[in-house]
Nucleic acid binder design. Structure first.
Length: 665
RNA sequence: GCCUAGGUAGCUCAGUGGUAGAGCACCCCCUUGGUAAGGGGGAGGUCGUGAGUUCAAUUCUCAUCCUAGGCUCCA
């Protein structure tokens, strides 16, 4: 097994290179890393098509240079790794959103922190040597021979999947890699990188495959940009909802209920504000809220299709009776294997804890006969859901095992689908704006290979989604084949503090459940018709939304959501009575007000309140008691707003206690 | 579930093969103070849990639970 090529892969290429062309046009600068030729990115030393029309340089500080720099850095890292740890195989090493990674199969174990330091040192040496990156294109069979010679099984496996006649390789110094490119002209262009962390990753992302060792890093055009990025990341980590949630007394976890949050009094306040806000919208938009059971006979989940297809994600509820029956059945007919044992158990353990509200809403719909005049019927439910998530995937509030959605199902006719979707999109954007989210990513997920229903129905449903998005003039991406098996969907994604994107809102067309539950309504023609079911949520799960919101506002909730809107700080004990009197009065009016009547001095009280991100502070001393008011200090301005009468305080609080879209103009 | 790294007081964290420490928070006392920590004293931990090695384990080994970063999966 030999990593390095026996001889440099001297190029035998013909034609004009990007560099030559740029030079001829006088467009080549010292900091040019690649070229954009008719929309495609080329290395400088790669010949470009003879009929190329437009050619522009990509310079180090252009956004398009970043992935090139990062991917090139990944190559340098892989070179360093194989120098330091002979026998290590390489897999994939792409540039990603905020850096790059490379996956390795290291036979003698995983990489340690110290290994990263060593790798970094060797990388610095490679960069200092400033060796050029070279591209070579080989015929398929020859490419195979090279990879066999290099002893790279993962690359060979990847080669199998490439159908191209010609395969490109990149080489810097003696290190060669099967690679699409492009790359910077030479290693010296890599001015600033940092290896950040390591993790396991399955080969080709499939858990049936062997686990590889992944090393993540990031790279920038210069040290200043790298420092800025690392600093920004540090700042972002301070906003982490798990950290803030603890510091601000919002949430907690206990090992007895893994991945299941406690909402502490302050957190529950905010949680309830979120639900209350959505309930108000429901009143406005003609939704009807229901409260449905938590635990159902498994017959329901058979009908809905959750058994067996959603089984791994469900909790089941055993009873002593059920266990005894199961035991008797097992003693009477001892099972031959695990499967039959499991079958007997699940037959006698009758109950399942609901992972979704849709089955019970179907039951509700079927309880009465419906006319087309009833439609659309919008049924909302904040029911608590339980899903068994595998231990490795849970995370803070963004991925939990018990949560509530601002869930609703709209039963409507096919003709009503587009209108319902359009008004839902409006609603989603209004809500996200109320919370201050502006960069919402919209994704339309279309029919997957495995699906139910005829192509005509899918055509209509997808058209309804696309038409609604287009009619709204919103930008969206298409995720082909990513729809649910029962229908296509629109997803609304927001980013958390560290830039991870989370799906919050969604609207999905469903033709499957109405079929399974044999739902129908009577049309104007006096015939039975199948309704369409739209699953939709705006916040998504209240828990996840809460987490993303905490990070978005960095714990500083706006007044309409703040658990404590105003805290009264007494200058000395002598003013406690007045403060309590004022607080009681404001609380009676619906404001969330507390008094800090501790023995702390004013400075300490202010510090504590500010650390809790309380939006308004009211200082109470001699002057305020005499003139019946408060000296207001605002969190957002971090300044003393001076004396306000009680009426003035209320005038400040009243409008800000409403969500922006409900405030008087 | 898999890979890697962690788990010491309510919180943030030191530390050690000879059964533990700081700051903040908490309790008590003094101070009655006007816009980001007034002073003093006290209490609080079977060092995640269970086994093993050892004369001796919080420290070393293994298992297990939880957490974190990924992979896979999803609201």
């Amino acid at each position: 097994m030999r990593r390095y090529a026996a001889r440099p892969m001297a190029d035998a290429m013909h034609g004009v290179t990007a560099r030559e062309r740029l030079e001829a046009l006088g467009k080549l600068q010292g900091d040019t890393v690649a070229a954009k030729v008719d929309g495609r990115v080329y290395d400088l030393h790669t010949p470009i098509p003879e009929d190329a029309r437009e050619i522009e340089p990509i310079r180090v500080n252009d956004p398009e240079a970043l992935p090139i720099i990062r991917h090139s850095t990944a190559h340098v890292m892989a070179d360093a790794v194989q120098r330091l740890f002979p026998g290590t195989k390489v897999a994939f090493g792409p540039a990603i959103d905020d850096g790059f990674y490379y996956d390795y199969d290291r036979p003698d174990g995983s990489f340690t922190e110290e290994d990263l330091e060593k790798i970094t040192e060797v990388m610095l040496g490679i960069i200092e040597a400033n060796t050029p990156f070279e591209r070579k294109v080989l015929p398929y069979e020859e490419a195979r021979r090279v990879l066999e010679e290099l002893g790279e099984p993962y690359k060979l496996e990847h080669l199998e999947r490439l159908k191209d006649e010609e395969i490109s390789f990149y080489q810097h110094g003696k290190w060669v890699d099967l690679c699409e490119g492009p790359h910077v002209p030479s290693t010296g262009f890599l001015k600033a990188f940092k290896l950040t962390h390591r993790a396991g990753a399955y080969w080709r992302g499939d858990e049936r495959n062997p686990m590889l060792q992944r090393i993540y890093g990031t790279a920038f055009p210069d040290a200043k940009a790298l420092r800025a990025y690392l600093l920004q990341r540090q700042e972002a980590e301070k906003r982490d909802h798990r950290k803030l949630g603890k510091e601000l007394g919002l949430i907690a976890f206990h090992p007895y209920a893994p991945a299941s949050p406690f909402f502490l009094p302050r957190g529950a306040q905010v949680y309830n504000r979120l639900v209350e806000y959505i309930r108000d919208l429901y009143d406005e938009k003609a939704y009807q809220e229901v409260i449905t059971p938590q635990i159902f006979d498994n017959a329901l989940f058979h009908t809905s299709g959750h058994l067996p297809s959603y089984r791994e994600n469900m909790f089941f509820a055993a009873t002593v009776d059920g266990l005894e029956e199961a035991s008797k059945a097992l003693v009477k007919n001892p099972p031959k294997d695990e499967e039959s044992c499991s079958h007997v158990l699940s037959e006698h353990l009758r109950f399942g804890v609901k992972p979704m509200n849709c089955p019970s809403h179907c039951l509700y719909f079927a309880m009465e006969k419906h006319s087309y005049r009833d439609l659309p019927l919008r049924i909302a439910d904040f029911g608590r859901l339980h899903r068994y998530e595998r231990s490795g995937v849970v995370q803070g509030l963004t991925r939990v095992r018990t949560f509530a959605q601002d869930d609703a199902h709209i039963f409507c006719t096919m003709e009503q689908v587009q209108g319902e979707i359009a008004s839902f999109i409006d609603l989603v954007f209004r809500v996200y704006e109320d919370f201050g989210f502006t960069d919402t990513k919209v994704i339309v997920a279309t029919r997957p290979d495995q699906r139910l229903g005829s192509d005509e129905v899918w055509d209509a449903a997808e058209a309804a989604l696309f038409d609604a998005c287009k009619a709204k003039g919103i930008a969206f991406e298409v995720a082909d084949g990513e729809g649910a098996f029962y229908g296509p969907k629109i997803e609304f994604h927001l980013k958390d503090a560290i830039g991870r994107s989370w799906q919050l809102g969604t609207i999905q067309c469903d033709f499957n459940l109405p079929e399974r539950f044999d739902l129908h309504y009577v049309g104007a023609d006096n015939e039975r018709h199948r309704p369409v079911m739209l699953h939709r949520a705006i916040l998504g799960s209240v828990e996840r939304f809460f987490g993303v919101l905490v990070e978005h506002v960095a714990g500083a909730f706006p007044i309409w959501l703040a658990p404590e809107q105003l805290r009264l700080l007494t200058v000395s004990e002598r003013f406690n009575d007045y403060a309590h009197e004022v607080a009681a009065d404001l609380r009676k009016k619906g404001y969330r007000v507390d008094v800090d009547d501790s023995a702390d001095k004013l400075g300490a009280k202010i510090r504590n309140a500010r650390n809790l991100r309380i939006p308004l502070l009211g200082v109470v001393g001699e002057r305020e008691v005499e003139s019946r008011g408060l000296a207001i200090r605002s969190r957002d301005e971090n300044a003393d707003l001076g004396f306000k009468t009680l009426d003035e305080v209320e005038a400040i609080l009243a409008p800000l206690s409403l969500p922006p879209s409900r405030r008087p103009a």
